[in-house]
């Protein structure tokens, strides 16, 4: 079998770039020409082989993405090369001063309560949680208000959902988010704690993580309850937010945190 003889036509046929008239003739020829048929089978198998490579490449990329999610930033230092010693010393002192000033500024920007909260908090993406039949969802008015950034309306709505109502845990979870974004930290903590007590798989762990972030936003990272919850999450191998909790713990205990706080 001469693969090259049929290669171009087989490729056009497979990729759908063959003109209709030629396509009909090609299909008619397939019925009688064994070599053409074999080349087509071979070509299709070749596509499967290449697809394996495409999949392997995406798998590698995702492994790299997963690794970057937890990677820490690397700082590099620049070199100074000035000859006379006094100039070197003066330059070094200036560099130390400037670096010191920038370090305090940098630490303040990246390790303060506000910065830690902003770096970790994600507003809930309601679209992934809402069902296709949104109109039938009893929490829809709250979701709509959240999406429209009408946080006070959302908070007021979720407050009206009572414990005997359907989707109470979910309502408490979103009440927590509404209150947190409004800066109503006590209400947010209560709501997330209530959600956690409902023990619903879909929301319980997320509520725990957001409760931690509420403490951070409120500047209460020395609170005993906060510390206990943070320890529980970062040591729980099965917890969905273990990595995030470990990263938060690392930042809270870091040198930069002490400078930036």
């Amino acid at each position: 079998m001469d693969v090259e003889r049929y290669m171009e036509r087989v490729e056009q046929y497979t990729l759908g770039t063959m003109p209709p008239a030629e396509r009909a003739a090609f299909e008619a020829e397939l019925a009688t020409n064994t070599e053409l048929r074999d080349t087509l089978d071979l070509y299709r198998l070749g596509q499967e082989v290449i697809e394996q490579g495409v999949e392997a490449d995406l798998r590698r990329k995702m492994q790299a993405w997963a690794a970057t999610e937890t990677a820490a930033p690397v700082m590099t230092a620049s070199r100074i090369n000035l000859r006379p010693m006094w100039i070197r010393l003066a330059a070094a002192a200036s560099v130390v001063l400037v670096l010191g000033w920038f370090s305090v500024q940098w630490a303040g920007q990246h390790y303060s309560d506000k910065a830690l909260f902003a770096g970790q908090y994600a507003t809930p993406e309601a679209s992934t949680l809402r069902s296709a039949t949104a109109a039938e969802n009893p929490l829809e008015p709250g979701f709509k208000a959240l999406e429209d950034k009408q946080l006070q309306t959302a908070e007021n709505f979720f407050k009206t959902v009572s414990p005997d109502q359907e989707r109470y845990a979910e309502a408490q979870y979103y009440l927590g988010h509404s209150a947190l974004q409004l800066g109503h930290f006590d209400l947010a903590k209560d709501a997330f704690q209530t959600c956690i007590r409902q023990n619903e798989v879909k929301f319980s762990e997320k509520a725990q993580w957001n409760l931690l972030l509420t403490y951070v936003a409120a500047g209460e990272t020395d609170n005993t309850d906060f510390r206990q919850l943070l320890d529980a999450l970062r040591n729980d191998n099965g917890h969905s937010y273990q990595r995030e909790a470990q990263a938060l713990y690392g930042k809270l205990e870091s040198f930069w945190r002490r400078i930036g706080k």
Binding site: M62, W65, A122, T128, K202, G238, S240, Y241
Partner: peptide, 15 residues
């Protein structure tokens, strides 16, 4: 890939 909520939902389902 960057949708953390989705990843957590899958992880929770598997767990």
């Amino acid at each position: 890939y960057d949708d953390g909520d989705l990843k957590r939902m899958v992880a929770a389902f598997v767990r």
